[in-house]
């Protein structure tokens, strides 16, 4: 066989593989959207879930998911940022740094159900936080932190050393160079990583079943006192998220329209994550343009 034929063959194989991947993804996405989207309605999004009768919505679950996401990011972003900056800008290449990197990698491949059970034992039982949004947010931080740290470290690393030297040569301190030169240049990458990890958090169920709980108590969306047990902002209340709801509806629900609820919820979940992804790209690009002054 000559080079040209080889090339044709290789191209053909690669195309076939790509088509296979696309087909699988389109089939799954299409199935979920096709089955779910027709059942999404304003009523479905804005009414509370029903335990026994049909016609329940996902208002609380959707809110819980978003609230948990925000809390998780508030907890994990500063830690991830600090660790990422340390690993990329300050850490020397030695066994200790290697140990941190290896630990981060091991933690990132930890099954989320293990994270959930660990969170259950430590936060829910030992620290007495109970099934709560806070327990869930901390567990999700454990789950999210490795990839977030890695992403921030990589984004910072991708900024050329020449930028650091430029800063240093102008008399800027290490810290100033990092925060004002390197960090802004890495921001689009960090933001993209952050929003992609938000997608993972949003879709997570196993780690939350044992930490944030499976019940969605009725909350008052007009009560802004976060210490009040009926407030929607109270982080100490149990909160069933959308992904947990899907799991629960499919395993132990007795409502007659369980199938409908699960399909529509899945579609909502996918759509929100899709919005995250598109938003990540758009925001990343906008931010980069703004920072670098490119039009």
């Amino acid at each position: 066989m000559n080079a040209k034929k080889y090339d044709h063959l290789a191209t053909g194989v690669i195309y076939t593989l790509v088509v296979a991947v696309i087909l699988i993804l389109v089939a799954i996405l299409g199935y979920i959207l096709f089955n779910g989207v027709p059942d999404i309605s304003w009523h479905f999004l804005t009414s509370a879930a029903q335990s026994f009768s049909a016609g329940g919505g996902i208002r609380d679950q959707l809110f819980n998911s978003l609230y948990l996401l925000v809390l998780t990011i508030i907890v994990s972003l500063p830690i991830g940022l600090g660790a990422g900056i340390y690993l990329s800008e300050y850490a020397k290449d030695n066994w200790f740094t290697d140990l941190i990197r290896t630990s981060v990698e091991v933690l990132s491949s930890l099954p989320s159900v293990v994270v959930g059970l660990f969170g259950y034992l430590l936060f829910v039982i030992k620290l007495n936080l109970g099934f709560s949004i806070l327990s869930g947010a901390i567990a999700l931080t454990f789950f999210n932190l490795p990839l977030l740290t890695r992403n921030i470290e990589e984004s910072l690393r991708s900024v050329p050393d020449l930028q650091r030297e430029a800063g240093m040569s102008l008399g800027l301190s290490n810290w100033k160079t990092t925060t004002k030169i390197v960090l802004p240049a890495a921001l689009p990458g960090i933001l993209t990583g952050l929003i992609l990890s938000a997608g993972r958090i949003f879709g997570e169920a196993a780690a939350l079943i044992y930490t944030a709980g499976q019940s969605a108590p009725t909350v008052d969306y007009t009560n802004w006192n976060i210490f009040s047990s009926t407030s929607f902002l109270n982080p100490m209340r149990p909160a069933e998220t959308l992904a947990v709801h899907i799991w629960k509806v499919n395993t132990e629900s007795v409502t007659p329209d369980a199938h409908l609820i699960s399909s529509a919820s899945s579609a909502v979940l996918i759509i929100v994550i899709l919005i995250f992804n598109l938003g990540a790209r758009f925001l990343g690009n906008q931010l980069y343009k703004k920072i670098t002054a490119t039009k």
Partner: peptide, 30 residues
């Protein structure tokens, strides 16, 4: 402080990913 008195230009151009104005004024403001 030394580097404010003894500046350096490198082999490959390394402007900051900022506007031309900011490139010049950033270190001054600092």
């Amino acid at each position: 402080e030394v580097r404010k008195h003894i500046g350096m230009v490198f082999q490959r151009p390394n402007p900051f990913a900022k506007s031309i104005r900011e490139n010049i004024t950033f270190a001054l403001k600092n």
